[in-house]
Amino acid sequence: MSTEFSVIIGRLVSAFTLNCELFCLTLLFALPLGLVIAFGSMSRFAPLRAAVKTFVWVIRGTPLMLQVIVIFLGPGLLGFQSPWPSNSSGRMMAAVAAFVINYACYFSEIYRGGIEAVPKGQTEAGQVLGMTRSQIFFKVTLLQVIKRILPPMGNEIITLVKDTSLANVISNKEIIMMAKEYSAKGLIWPLFSTAIFFLIFVGALTLLFGWLEKRLDYFR
C-alpha cells in the first residue's frame, strides 16, 4: 500500500509538471502579447481598434475549453495540414497556443484599464517638461499602471493555474486526467488529492502578489 501511495503521488507530481509548464509558457507569451493587443485596442486608427476589440470580444465571450479544441482540430477540419505534430508535444503546443491567445486578451483588458486609469495630467506634465512619448511611458506611466493592475492580474493568474487542467480536453495528460484514471479503477483519493497541488501553487502566488503589492505601497 505504501509503495503504491508513493508511486501514485510520484505520477501525480510528474503530471502536475505539465500544468506548471503550461502555466509558465502561457505567462511568458501572453503577458507581452497582451500589451500589444492593449495598444491595438487603444489605437487612434479606428479600423484597427475595431478589429482588435472584436477579436477580444470573441475570445473573451467563448469558453477556453472550446478554443482549445478549435485550435487543435480546426485547421484539420478546414482541410489544411494540421500545424500540430501528431504526438503528445503537438497536443501541448496546441494547448499553449490556445491559452496564450485567450489569456493575452484578458490581460489586454487589464492593461488597458490600468493605462486609462492613469490621469491624463500625468502625461501632460511629462510633455510640458519636454519628455518624449517613450520617456513618459517608461518613466512616468508604467509604474503607476503596474501598481493599478497588480490586483486584477493576481486574480487572472490564479485563475490560469486552475484553467491549466482544461488542457486535458485534447488529451494532455495533466494532473486531473491522471487522477481520473485511478478513479476509473475505483481509487478515488488521488482525484481529491489534486486539490492540494492547486492550493499550494495558488497559495504561493497569493503570497507573491501580496508581497509585490506591498513593495508598491510607498506611493498612491
Binding site: P119, G121, Q122, E124, A125, V128, V140, Q144, K147, F219
Partner: peptide, 14 residues
C-alpha cells in the same frame, strides 16, 4: 521655452 504649472499639480506620485 514655456513652463506650465497645473491647477491640480500633476506631480509624479512614484
Amino acid at each position: 521655452h514655456f513652463g506650465l504649472v497645473f491647477q491640480n499639480f500633476n506631480l509624479f506620485p512614484q
